[in-house]
């Protein structure tokens, strides 16, 4: 490959012809490096422009499956998943906590089970009535609010919920607009 350096001086004087040649050599060598470099860089950087599908409401549970006692219950979110070239039908794509209270039994509160600190999965400790993250001891109220002092910068990420009549039978089903959010920052910013 063409090696070049403008720093070194030629041993035999520096006439105009030699200067033009040196500039040309650098330009030509640079061109040779730029084409494969740019082609490779474009693909290397492609994740920056890749965007996933928009979040949609996904049926997660029946309303009856969530006792109206204020205690969060864990549910898997199952949906079709696309991973690069593969399409995986009906796979768990995440976990949510759903909660209902006796005062407002028709209202369901949902939050993503992923800790907003650095992405571990939180668990609910019934004895202490709190969410607890095993990685850096962040703790959250059953409503998902941060209990300071905590490593996390924000509370658990709440998710949009719809309660609607089930297609069959007379029960109701709970749909959650499932999203993951960027971790480590105080703002709730959806990942795409």
């Amino acid at each position: 490959m063409a090696q070049h350096s403008t720093a070194a001086a030629p041993p035999d004087g520096d006439d105009r012809r030699g200067f033009v040649k040196r500039v040309l050599a650098v330009v030509v060598g640079g061109l040779c490096a730029v084409v494969p470099g740019a082609a490779a860089l474009r693909v290397f950087l492609s994740p920056l422009w890749r965007r996933g599908a928009d979040a949609t409401f996904i049926p997660v549970a029946t309303l009856d499956a969530i006792p109206a006692d204020g205690v969060p219950r864990m549910f898997k979110v199952v949906a079709d998943r696309t991973d690069a070239w593969n399409r995986f039908p009906n796979e768990p794509i995440g976990t949510v906590f759903l909660r209902r209270t006796a005062e407002k039994p028709d209202e369901v509160h949902a939050c993503n089970a992923v800790c907003p600190h650095l992405g571990c999965m939180v668990g609910y400790q019934a004895s202490q009535t709190r969410f607890y993250c095993p990685c850096h001891q962040s703790a959250f109220t059953p409503e998902g609010k941060l209990i300071p002092p905590s490593a996390a910068a924000r509370g658990l990420d709440s998710l949009d919920v719809k309660v609607e009549a089930a297609a069959e039978g007379d029960g109701k089903r709970v749909l959650v607009k499932f999203q993951n959010f960027r971790s480590g920052i105080p703002e709730k910013v959806a990942k795409s």
């Binding site: 063409a2 070049h4 030629p10 040649k21 050599a25 060598g29 040779c32 084409v35 494969p36």
Partner: peptide
Amino acid sequence: EAFWPDQVLKDGVACLAVLAVVL
């Protein structure tokens, strides 16, 4: 002559020609 710059330029032009064909 020294390798730099005359032979480097010739080599570079040859590489560029190869690259042009491949591209």
